[in-house]
């Protein structure tokens, strides 16, 4: 059992008071390790809430630097951070929120070559990337490494998310076999996105990570939650694990990772 300092008792009192979290749950958070892939619109609220919650070790991966067009939704980055590495900008805010937290920064793209190494050792992974090929890569790598993760995506006014516990619940490929062809789906930067929905979806992902670490409630597994912020309609579709899933099915055809062609977005390849 973690020995809480008086300051920690105050800092985490609202968790400790929660019947389903309590002292034990907070101790699990402090011992927990979460990797956030993408320090953008989704990664920002996830990073802040997980740091505030006292998740002991948080890794954050992104190769980009902060641009002025990010500031409309990527709330870890401030105007003065323009030009800085996103991971460093985010890490500074996370440490400022909670000095208890160890932040590991990875300024790199995720690729088939490095992702398994990156996620290994983390308890939970949050997908906060903005393109389909990387979402599939995260799904595939997490299933192969047996690490639970939260998938999330936003576009325009819409968001969607699901949690995956490899080997137990439907993976992303059980329902969506392969990424849409490049340019079939607009990327964030082409289509635009309402800034606040990054917070709406990112905080759902953060809550899933906290639920997983504390063992509280039921994860958003075997379901896809989607919303349309224009009408504020939320929909939860039941998903089932597929016997013939090319990744997590009984005779998988995908047994190693590969990089897929990515939509070219403003001539910049994103991870």
């Amino acid at each position: 059992m973690t020995d809480f300092s008086e300051e920690q008792l105050h800092r985490y009192s609202r968790h400790i008071l929660l019947e389903d979290v309590g002292v034990e749950g907070q101790a699990r958070l402090l011992a927990g390790k979460v990797l956030i892939i993408g320090a953008g619109g989704l990664g920002a609220p996830v990073a802040l809430y997980l740091a505030a919650a006292g998740v002991g070790t948080i890794g954050i991966v992104d190769n980009d630097h902060v641009e002025i067009s990010n500031l409309q939704r990527q709330i870890t980055h401030f105007t003065e951070d323009i030009g800085a590495a996103k991971v460093e900008s985010a890490a500074a805010k996370m440490r400022a929120v909670n000095p208890d937290v160890t932040v590991n920064t990875y300024r790199q793209y995720v690729s088939a070559a490095n992702i398994r190494e990156l996620i290994r050792g983390y308890d939970f992974v949050v997908d906060g990337v903005d393109n389909f090929p990387t979402k599939f890569l995260i799904n595939d790598a997490c299933v192969m490494e047996s690490i639970p993760f939260s998938h999330g995506g936003i576009l325009r006014f819409d968001g969607q998310t699901m949690s995956v516990v490899p080997g137990k619940s439907a993976c992303y490929r059980c329902s969506f076999r392969k990424p849409p062809p490049p340019d079939a789906v607009p990327t964030c930067s082409q289509a635009g996105v309402l800034g606040a929905i990054a917070g709406m979806l990112g905080t759902i992902q953060a809550a899933e990570a906290l639920k997983y670490l504390t063992g509280t409630g039921r994860l958003l597994t075997d379901a896809l939650l989607s919303f349309d912020a224009k009408t504020m309609d939320f929909r939860k579709i039941r998903l089932r694990r597929q016997e013939n899933c090319p990744l997590c099915g009984s005779s998988p055809s995908i047994t190693e990772l590969s990089d897929m062609e990515q939509a070219v977005c403003g001539l910049k390849r994103r991870a």
Partner: peptide, 14 residues
Amino acid sequence: CPMNLVHAKVGLAA
């Protein structure tokens, strides 16, 4: 309240 409950819960957890 509520820090007294926090302390009580810490006591119970041990």
